[in-house]
Design a protein around this nucleic acid. Structure first.
Lengths: 211, 211
DNA sequence: TAGATTGTTAATCGATTAACAATC
DNA sequence: TAGATTGTTAATCGATTAACAATC
């Protein structure tokens, strides 16, 4: 029986978001070999049925009475997200956030390596952020080619975000991870993922208001 | 006609998330006085119908042929999220991420003030992060009381996250903004908002894989 | 075998979209 | 007035939940 790896069905958005949570959860569960849908559900405050339903979108098989084999689950989710492929990223903006990201330890296990960090402030250029030396924007072109970078992270001020996005796209970047609140205008085919840092605290504020 | 401000209908989760986006978008639109649902929709890649439907959950009224009055929209959303109330927060962990958050400029406009930053590393205690001096954990109790802090931000390492959460809750914290990938165990009534920083890049990786 | 848990189909529930009347 | 855009109801679509058969 040959492996059937065509995936004809598009994954629903809510399921996609939960797959990320399963992925994160499993990276924490290193002590056990098997885990049941019941157990996963409890930790994430959802129902076991939902967990099993979500897993039908992947090539995942559990064993009745035992549960799901954690390493296999992990492998499947890792393939789904492509975390076993190493992607080089570049960070534009060596301010607080950019620097913190450049030094972030958690990227390794999801297949991300920070190739370089850039800034246009002469005072910052040449200074060290972790093990990286801050490079001038003029170096972007070279670094993208050299490290085959497809993902750019924008951590600059709001008023230069659009400009930087265009610069990145001109130089062949395919995906932008945008940490500014600016709605970037980009041509079709470019992936833009907005990571508004304030989003979580807005939920907290709203929930607290009701009490 | 008296203002009817009972809000009997619970807001759907997807609508809630979009309200955050409208809120962020409006903070960018300072040049115009009115904006149409069409215009909002275009910028956020959704439909105008959805925008109008979402607004029915708030006390928002647009004018046919003109659109929505931006300052009023902003005020309504600000009340919804409680961004006009100033909340003091404390940050635990003065590493890269904790320090970046402590210095983050965007908190002010959503009604957040960082009251203090803590660490248990003797080398960090007393050092400056922006305008704040890093305090030892022993000071947490006092600071929470003094500044009536209800929100705690966890930026420590994975293995002390749970412990810190318990410490915060013991000292009266009502909501936790968790930047670690750990699934915190908390008593009922405590709000926990997990802000997994890697979530955005997983989406990017998955989308890129398909091409 | 009996029991527990998976996997899947059908039923329900909720959100989005479409249609159109109201209105500035 | 005519036209454009809002606001709302009804129809559709999609996701979740429930039920239960399959299976280790």
């Amino acid at each position: 029986m040959s492996k059937n790896n065509n995936k004809p069905i598009e994954i629903p958005k809510p399921t996609f978001e939960r797959l990320k949570k399963y992925h994160a959860l499993l990276l924490q569960e290193k002590d056990k070999e098997y885990i049941s849908s019941e157990e996963i559900a409890e930790k994430l405050n959802i129902t076991p049925e939902q967990v099993r339903k979500d897993f039908t979108y992947l090539n995942i098989n559990g064993k009745p009475k035992i549960g799901y084999h954690i390493p296999s689950l992990e492998k499947e989710l890792s393939e789904f997200f492509g975390t076993w492929i190493l992607d080089n990223i570049i960070i534009i903006g060596a301010g607080n956030l950019g620097s913190a990201l450049a030094k972030y330890k958690g990227f390794k296990k999801i297949g991300i390596r920070v190739a370089a960090i850039f800034d246009n402030d002469p005072e910052k250029i040449g200074s060290l952020v972790g093990e990286l030396s801050v490079l001038p924007l003029a170096e972007i072109k070279r670094v993208i080619k050299r490290f085959k970078v497809k993902i750019g992270v924008i951590c600059v001020s709001e008023n230069s975000a659009q400009e930087i996005a265009e610069l990145l796209i001109q130089n062949g970047i395919k995906a932008i991870w945008n940490f500014t609140p600016v709605n970037l205008q980009t041509p079709p085919g470019i992936i833009v993922e907005n990571q508004d840092i304030t989003t979580g605290i807005l939920t907290i504020k709203h929930l607290m208001e009701k009490e």
